Amino acid sequence: MQLDGKVALVTGSSKGLGRSIVLRLAEAGADVIINYSRDEASADEVRKAAEAQGVRTLVVRADVSRVEGIQQLFDAAITEFGRIDIVVANAGMEKVNVPVAEVTEEDFDLLFRVNTKGPYFVLREAARRLADNGRIISISSNTTTVPQMGVGLYGTSKVATGYLARVMALELGPRGITVNTVVPGPIDGAGIFTDPANDEYKKSLISTVPIGRLGTPQEVAGVTAFLASDDAALITGQQLVADGGMH
């Protein structure tokens, strides 16, 4: 899965799953654009780790839940590298253990802005600016396929990207661009599972996973790198589930 000479943009990539995706793509030889919204120090650490792989990097602060921020991110990437070959729409926000009856309008607006509107316009911008034969990958969640109490809002906010990928696969196929979605289960060491306060919730989830453990950011990054590679040239419009058999 060599990506030498490719340029990859990963949203929300200063920590957690996004960080692992950037480093896996860099390991395969891709130059990488690292995006963050608040944590500059963490983004700089990712930059150093990626550059240690011998690739070029660009760190861009941009709020990718807003169209203006998305356009600024793509502008900076094109200015620096002249092209983009791979776009991974990873940025998102988790909110679990909230019954539908307790969801507020503010909760709804925030999660749909971050998890639905943001990725939609990241993919729109990718469709406009990606080089031919490129790769577009969205990171979703198996809460879209495995109903669980307390994830009604979060799961609903993540549903749209899978459908959008199927539509865009049809629209962009003539240009050789593939569009797919990675659907992870709960990821140990990312999102809410970086907080020890959620350890009991983590234990309850592990009991539902056939392989007996949660996935790791590195494992999901490996799936993403595969879809970004030439080996996956015939795979498009698909949702690749990586959840240890929960689905």
Rank of each mutant, 00 (worst) to 15 (best):
G12S: 09
S13W: 09
K15H: 06
K15P: 00
G16S: 12
G16C: 10
I21L: 04
V22T: 04
V22M: 09
L23R: 01
R24P: 05
V32A: 11
I33W: 05
I33E: 03
Y36R: 03
S37D: 07
R38D: 00
S42P: 00
D44M: 14
E45L: 14
R47Y: 11
R47G: 03
E51N: 05
A52K: 08
V55M: 11
R56K: 15
T57C: 05
V59L: 05
V60W: 03
R61Y: 00
A62V: 07
A62F: 10
D63H: 01
S65L: 11
S65D: 07
G69Q: 02
L73D: 05
A76F: 04
I78H: 02
T79L: 13
E80H: 13
E80C: 07
E80P: 01
D85K: 06
V88E: 08
V96N: 07
V100W: 06
V100E: 01
V100I: 15
E102P: 09
E102R: 11
T104H: 03
E105Q: 14
E106K: 13
F108C: 00
D109G: 04
F112I: 03
R113F: 08
V114D: 04
N115A: 09
K117V: 11
G118H: 00
Y120W: 12
Y120Q: 07
Y120E: 00
F121S: 03
V122T: 10
V122F: 08
E125C: 08
E125D: 12
A126R: 02
A126N: 02
G134C: 04
R135N: 06
S138Y: 01
S138R: 00
I139T: 13
S140C: 01
S140A: 15
N142D: 15
T143E: 10
T143H: 15
V146G: 08
V146E: 13
Q148W: 14
G150M: 06
V151H: 06
G152Y: 10
G152D: 10
G155A: 13
S157D: 04
V159Y: 14
T161D: 00
T161N: 12
G162C: 14
Y163L: 15
Y163E: 11
R166E: 15
A169G: 14
L172Q: 00
G173S: 10
R175D: 10
G176N: 13
G176M: 12
G176T: 02
G176Y: 12
I177W: 02
T178L: 00
T178F: 07
N180H: 11
V182W: 03
V183P: 11
V183Q: 07
P184S: 03
P184L: 12
P184G: 12
G185W: 10
I187K: 08
I187R: 05
D188K: 15
A190L: 12
A190Q: 08
F193V: 12
F193I: 11
T194V: 03
D195W: 13
D195V: 13
A197V: 05
N198V: 09
D199I: 09
K202S: 02
K203N: 13
L205W: 09
I206T: 14
G212N: 02
L214F: 06
G215I: 04
G215Y: 05
P217V: 04
Q218W: 11
E219S: 11
E219C: 05
V220Y: 03
L227R: 07
A228V: 08
S229R: 06
D231Y: 13
A232S: 13
A232G: 12
A233P: 07
I235K: 07
V241P: 04
A242F: 11
G244E: 04
